[in-house]
Design a protein around this nucleic acid. Structure first.
Lengths: 215, 215, 215, 215
DNA sequence: GATGAATGAGATTTCATTCAT
DNA sequence: GATGAATGAAATCTCATTCAT
């Protein structure tokens, strides 16, 4: 139905309106969810007549699906290129994790849309992608395998579990932001705090919490 | 209000209705969220006249808050008693984690309500508890500190970060269930799979992914 | 969905409201058709909140179908009993035709609803009855056959064609009322004019179907 | 309006567009009626910009009236010339009826527009013609009178009633097509079936209006 | 003359809430 | 305490019409 396959960046007035609607909708859906969002609100935010939303997207639900599609595409841009084959697996993990962590840090919209979708049991997202595996789609799986092969990472790892765990360690910081903020005096989104969380994750992933005596 | 008998045991018919509403509401709110749930639906599920919901709870939103309160209380039951002071810190962590993990496994309602609440930025939950920190409320903090003190856990750990990470590792398995299920052939909620995830978490938490040569 | 199978004449307040809606809708749909009618208008005419229409009938379209069902049922009341087996076939025809003609004369609502339905190609009526054959449903078919068997009516008649023709001769007077009124000075619905049309039809029909002995 | 060339032959592009709109509108109005038709649909069918409809016809309603005018004109083409003064009145009736019947058979659009109009109580058609009496406008009235005068048709006929009846006998076959089709195995619009209905009508009409000599 | 985009008014439908009993 | 019926407000969606080019 929609031809906005990649980025909505064609032109002509209509494309621009269509895009304005999509961006406004993405913002509002991400903040309030499908049920909480109001079409009137989206129209106002897009500075366009409500009628146009139906003209371009057919229904509120379909607009939501298009918003998902648009956001899910962001993952593709992110995913590839983190794995540098010759490189130290540890370095590869660091790179991929940093990239993913900061991607989430910078795109709250994405984080929230994915979360709504999880609560909706993938009802709408499944119309867009057979399955969105976030990180799994990226190179991280290959990186881990490479590390195992090269004897750097433990050979008994279940890569799927590790991917899921890494995913969780990054995401939780953003999805629970309001709830954990009171635990720290600084703003969770400040550069320092972000970097500090990332370092914790890397440390955690590599070493766990045990003190490893080496001799 | 005027002449109702005030029996010492007040669990009369009215209390039972009130409870039926709460349980039905908890189920439906957990599945659809505040905005997605319908008062009619709740009344039907509670097998009660819609009017009673307003009689007992005043409004849909307030009913939702009561559902949150009821669920958040479950945490208290869970939290205390995991920390056995003299015990090996590793053993204490294992016990607390297992307890928490299976608590989440057995209470999807809780998991989902907490997740909706996170997306709602704690708007309603904050009416109930100043902050719900799930695990943090439990003994795990103390256990970790005890482990550090006793030289078993690394001294440079930021306990808050660790608590958050452990929380994430457990929760993600349930909140993303539908999305990750395709990665495994077995049912994610089967005993085997649950135990296997728990072991992964324990292993991950204790050791991370690196191969630690010991000599 | 609806339990108003026969006549809507149960009781209790809700049944009464439901009936009021149905009657108001029948009136307005018959005057303006499905597309021309407004739900607001029906609600106002039924002196009820619009919401109730959806509560009882689900949708405008479904309400229309129920109106059709209610009206089509009138035919059954009418249809049976015109055929008196031993009687002169001519007498039987006279009786059945008079009955049908005056039924149409007295129920403009029915006439118009059936006509809208015809223009809609039976789209909605077919949900109610597999086929509404108006007169054909009545005894007239039997009466004609009886007349043929007894040598009063011409043996080469195609009863289906005759039924259709009779149907047309009666109905046209009411469906084209506004258009033909200018041809006569009196009111088409006056007793005199009605009787005069009926006599014309009977005369027309008899001299058409009668076997004319020539000697 | 200011400087447009006023060619003697004005059938330029504009006239052609105007006509295309009219034809598309006639088709759609005839199928769905005034209320059921959509301006968008008409524009799409005419392969023209919607704006042009307003440019040429001012409003949807006015376009409908023009469609009626265009269709009602067809009657004039049909009407005259059926009456051959010297001819046998029976022959004249046969000719006129056949002509009318097949005119209706071939122009469903006309049949349906006239029927919508009847249900609309001539609201729009009356803007076009003070009264449209279909057949009455034709020679049939004269033919009947001629037949009476010459002692072929019964002298007590009310010509208006007969005209109305003949009108009905022809029209009903087309207006109720979908509803009566199930009564016959063949397609109602097949040559055989059409001819068979026409013969029925002629037979029906003649044996009704003919003076039956008994010796 | 022609077009694509846009709109305001109003249609149908939904929903939390309250009335009358 | 409990119920069935009802409602006002607001949501989604539709449509004839007009603007800007």
């Amino acid at each position: 139905m929609s031809k906005t396959k990649k980025l909505p960046e064609e032109n002509s007035r209509s494309e621009e309106s269509k895009t304005r609607i999509l961006l406004a909708a993405a913002d509002i859906f991400s903040r309030k969810g499908l049920d909480g969002a109001r079409v009137d609100e989206i129209a106002a935010a897009a500075q366009i007549n409500k009628r146009m939303i139906y003209h371009y997207y057919g229904s509120k639900e379909n607009l939501y699906v298009e918003v998902l599609r648009y956001n899910y595409n962001k993952i593709y841009v992110l995913s590839k290129g983190a794995f540098v084959p010759g490189d130290d697996p540890r370095e590869n993990v660091r790179r991929a994790l940093r990239r993913y962590f900061y991607f989430l840090a910078q795109d709250e919209e994405f984080v929230r849309l994915v979360s709504w979708e999880a609560l909706n049991r993938g009802r709408y997202g499944s119309m867009v992608l057979p399955q969105l595996l976030d990180l799994a789609q990226s190179d991280l799986g290959e990186i881990l395998q490479d590390g195992i092969n090269r004897g750097i990472f433990r050979p008994d790892l279940d890569i799927r579990q590790v991917l899921l765990s890494i995913h969780a360690l990054c995401l939780v910081y953003f999805t629970r932001r309001e709830m954990i903020q009171p635990m720290w005096p600084q703003d969770l989104m400040s550069e320092d705090m972000l970097e500090s969380r990332l370092q914790h994750i890397l440390d955690f992933v590599f070493n766990g919490i045990l003190k490893h005596d080496k001799a």
